[in-house]
Amino acid sequence: MPDPDDGPRRFRDRPVSFVRRSGRMSDGQERAWSELADRYLVPVERDAAATSIRPGTTVDPVALFGRTAPLTVEIGSGQGHAIVHAATTRPGEDHLAVEVFRAGLARTMLDADRAGVDNLRLVEGNAPEVLEHLLPEGSVDEVWIFFPDPWHKSRHHKRRLIAPDFPPLAARALRDGGRLRLATDWQDYAVQMREVLADAADFRAGFEGEWAPRYEGRVMTAFERKGLAKGREIRDLTYVRTPRR
């Protein structure tokens, strides 16, 4: 059965890295969406699907945040623990959370509001399209992808986000010298990430040896605790965007 969010094949020429199941938000999340979305949620023009980004619709980060500052984008921000912590502890930087699940976005808004942060915005959208269409070229200082869905069954590996067609999209959005930070608790996915980025023309490894040290800016989340509790090792990888020619 086709994914209802895939829409016409014109703009979804590969399987998306998520299945957007409908789910009822809690009363608190519903209130957060109605009361805080105007403050935190970036309005975007859609294309073929509910989470798509219309080509040619680009946001200006300076206008979005009202200042010029380093910008970090977290892809698959979940309930927002990492990005809200970053926004709280780094007030001189701006942060953008990209997520497809409304319940997670609503929770992120609630926590951001409680923390009183104004240097965080949220996008409800498919991450590759956000990187390709919504963000200006060279506008991002760091892209974070922490514990993406591993799609651990072999027949589902085609849905993994970190695949050969992903690095050019991340490279487009990142400034020269910007960083792509990855983390996963699935060994085979970590190896796949490393192989994909090793072949990426626009990136070089930002670490020595097999794996990068744990990124100090990554707050411990439920996903990481769950992996550790199951005896899985956490693998970090960091890559630097090489200069444009």
Rank of each mutant, 00 (worst) to 15 (best):
R175K: 13
A171R: 00
P167T: 08
D165R: 09
I162C: 13
P164V: 01
L169I: 05
K158Y: 06
R159E: 10
D165N: 06
R160M: 11
K158H: 08
D165Y: 01
A171M: 05
D165E: 13
R160W: 13
H157R: 14
R179N: 00
R181S: 10
G177P: 02
R155C: 10
P168E: 07
A170T: 12
K153I: 13
R179L: 11
L161S: 06
D165V: 08
H156K: 11
A171F: 00
A173S: 10
R172Q: 03
R155M: 10
G177K: 02
R155T: 12
R179E: 09
R179P: 00
L182A: 08
K153V: 14
G178S: 05
K153S: 13
R181D: 00
A170S: 11
F166K: 02
R175V: 02
S154Y: 11
K158V: 11
K153N: 14
L174E: 03
D176T: 10
A163V: 09
H156P: 04
A171I: 02
R175G: 05
F166V: 00
K153W: 15
P168N: 08
A170V: 15
R160I: 08
I162T: 10
G178P: 05
L174N: 07
A163S: 14
L169W: 06
L182P: 07
R179K: 11
I162G: 04
K158G: 05
A163W: 11
R155L: 11
K158S: 08
R160C: 11
I162S: 04
I162Y: 10
G177C: 08
S154Q: 15
G178Y: 01
L174K: 06
A173I: 04
L174S: 01
D176L: 01
L161Y: 10
L161R: 09
H156M: 14
A163N: 12
S154N: 14
P168S: 06
D165C: 00
A171L: 03
D176H: 04
R179S: 09
R181N: 11
F166T: 03
L182E: 04
L174H: 03
G178W: 05
R175N: 03
R159F: 11
D176M: 01
H156E: 15
P167V: 06
L161N: 11
R155F: 08
P167H: 07
R155P: 01
K153M: 14
S154P: 05
L180G: 03
A173Y: 04
L174A: 00
G177R: 02
F166Y: 13
L182H: 07
I162P: 07
D165F: 06
L169K: 15
D176V: 01
H157C: 10
L161P: 05
L180W: 12
D165P: 02
I162H: 13
L182M: 12
R172F: 00
H157A: 13
R181W: 04
G178F: 06
P167I: 09
I162R: 00
G177N: 02
R179H: 10
I162F: 15
R160P: 09
H156C: 09
R155Q: 14
D176A: 12
L161I: 08
